[in-house]
């Protein structure tokens, strides 16, 4: 199943890869997709509903490195590449913003191909907590992010 997800992501990325610069920032995907059963897209953050991705940073790091070995060219830069997105109540990811800094947290741009490879990896993450509730709002969507700490072209750590 994971193989087909990756294959689909690869094909769809070649065909449909987006990189939009809007006044609010740079996006990989500007579409917002919320299942009809979900609550409206309020600005609820993952930490308000204990929705950190439920795989440890070291385990994710191992997965990311294995994925990149097959799907990316090597680079030499250092810094942070962050993908921030909505997860709807069914676990679907959309409206993906990308933020990039160097190791001193100054805005920069990594090679686009490399960013796309990390984005493909982020899209394979399919264990996001779903059907959450906050106060009296059921089936909420929430905003989450995944940051890749890059050191000399290697993914060195994954945040959160």
């Amino acid at each position: 199943m994971k193989f087909f997800t990756i294959l689909f992501c690869l094909v769809s990325n070649i065909l449909f890869a987006q990189n939009f610069v809007l006044p609010q920032g740079e996006y990989m995907d500007t579409t917002s997709v919320f299942h009809s059963d979900c609550a409206p897209p309020y600005a609820i953050y993952y930490y308000q509903v204990q929705a950190k991705y439920p795989v440890s940073s070291p385990a994710l790091l191992t997965e990311a490195r294995a994925f990149l070995k097959q799907n990316s060219n090597s680079i030499e830069s250092s810094g942070y590449i962050t993908f921030r997105f909505f997860i709807d109540c069914k676990g679907s990811m959309s409206r993906v913003q990308v933020l990039q800094t160097d190791e001193n947290y100054k805005t920069t741009h990594f090679p686009k191909e490399y960013v796309n490879s990390l984005y493909l990896f982020v899209k394979t993450l399919d264990k996001w907590p779903t059907q959450l509730q906050i106060q009296n709002i059921k089936n909420i969507n929430y905003i989450a992010f995944i940051s890749f700490k890059i050191k000399n072209g290697q993914v060195d750590n994954i945040i959160p």
Partner: peptide, 11 residues
């Protein structure tokens, strides 16, 4: 900081 925007946070 809590939302992953490190450029603005650390400035």
């Amino acid at each position: 900081l809590k939302n992953g925007d490190y450029a603005k946070a650390f400035q």
